[in-house]
């Protein structure tokens, strides 16, 4: 036996084994190498068989060296195994990761649906329920119950499309609702106070269309009636709405306006968009404000009409156009885009 067991012979064997391992290129060779050196009949194992024959001093030194060698070879084996596996994966076809992925078709909700949902969600968070009503409405609910009797000049504010149907008295009692406000009376007739609802839905007006006017549009009406509801509550509710939908730094402003079913009646504006030059929202000029809805305290005659005691109950109502809100939010320049349904428009939202 040329290689007597010694520190030197173990070192020599280790060097030889590592050299050999580094030259091996595939998994089979690595296994053979393992059997050859570390197996039960392997070279290192064989060498160590002579250990008991050594002097105790030498045995301790050589034994320790032999353990180090075994650990070194096992570590090298594990490393080389990983390297070879990695090289094998790398040799497979690489992907052009820039190729477009497998197509998955998704649709989107119409922008009006999205805005209506966002607005309703803001009010639902404040305890409002969502209700819907008929699009073909009776004059009685669309006008009369809202303190707009036949012949009232305020009817000029709502040019109507009437249904071709006459009742026994020869009147045309049905029309396409001009606002979702008729649900005020319908909701209050059906329940006792407290009331807190928002009413989204389609409305119709006999009106020429242009970039800011549509004859068919959505409105979201809101109504809150209970004991103790004040104009201050209206301000707070609409302020919270404006912050949720338009952002925290918006301010709101009210000016006197007229709708026959509220008194006092107001128009609410929000502060306009950030001035790109200064990064601020100027509020000192009229053009810095954008009117977004009409509102007011429910007119006592409307409350009386549904059998609520106007001395006991008070409430507020408001109405806004989601398309207009969407136009402001998304910078849409023409309301007619909404219902032309060009998918190039619809897919942007």
């Amino acid at each position: 036996m040329t290689n007597a067991l010694s520190v030197q012979s173990i070192d020599q064997l280790t060097r030889d084994a590592l050299d050999e391992l580094n030259r091996i290129g595939e998994a089979d060779g690595v296994e053979q190498w393992r059997v050859a050196y570390l197996g039960r009949r392997g070279k290192l194992t064989g060498l160590l068989r002579a250990l008991p024959k050594l002097e105790p001093d030498q045995r301790r030194e050589v034994g320790s060296r032999a353990n180090q060698a075994k650990n070194a070879l096992e570590e090298a084996l594990a490393r080389r195994t990983r390297e070879i596996a990695q090289a094998a994966l790398a040799s497979q076809d690489a992907l052009d990761v820039s190729l477009p992925g497998r197509p998955v078709v998704t649709g989107r909700l119409h922008p009006t649906t999205q805005i209506v949902r966002e607005i309703c969600a803001a009010f639902m968070a404040m305890g409002f329920s969502v209700v819907e009503g008929p699009e073909v409405e009776l004059d009685h609910y669309n006008f009369e119950m809202l303190n707009i009797p036949a012949g009232h000049p305020a009817r000029d504010m709502w040019n109507s499309l009437w249904i071709d149907y006459a009742n026994e008295e020869g009147q045309q009692p049905m029309l396409l609702r001009t606002h979702t406000s008729p649900m005020q009376a319908r909701v209050m007739e059906a329940q006792d106070p407290p009331v807190r609802v928002v009413v989204p839905g389609k409305c119709y007006r006999y009106e020429a269309t242009d970039a800011t006017h549509e004859w068919h549009f959505y409105q979201i009406e809101g109504l809150a009636v209970a004991e103790g509801i004040t104009f201050a509550d209206l301000k707070g509710t609409l302020y919270e709405f404006a912050r949720r939908v338009f952002g925290e730094d918006r301010q709101i402003r009210f000016r006197c306006d007229y709708f026959p079913f509220v008194e006092p009646g107001v128009d609410m504006s929000i502060s306009n968009f950030v001035d790109p030059e200064t990064g601020r929202r100027p509020i000192n000029r009229d053009e810095d404000w954008i009117e977004i809805m009409g509102a007011g305290m429910v007119h006592p005659r409307v409350l009386e009409g549904v059998g609520y005691d106007p001395q006991r109950y008070t409430g507020f109502a408001f109405g806004m156009g989601p398309e207009r809100i969407g136009m402001l939010k998304y910078g849409i320049d023409d309301i007619r885009h909404f219902y032309r349904n060009d998918v190039r428009f619809l897919r942007q939202f």
């Binding site: 305890g127 807190r196 509550d233 301000k235 707070g236 009210f254 006197c256 008194e263 107001v266």
Partner: peptide, 30 residues
């Protein structure tokens, strides 16, 4: 009616003077 006078008063004073509060009446059953 009284509400008409209330509007006369507040529209001249200005709505900015009205405080901003949150609804404190009971939330109706949803």
């Amino acid at each position: 009616i009284e509400e008409d006078l209330i509007e006369e008063v507040i529209r001249i004073i200005g709505y900015d003077e009205v405080p901003t509060t949150m609804l404190s009446s009971p939330i109706p059953y949803h």
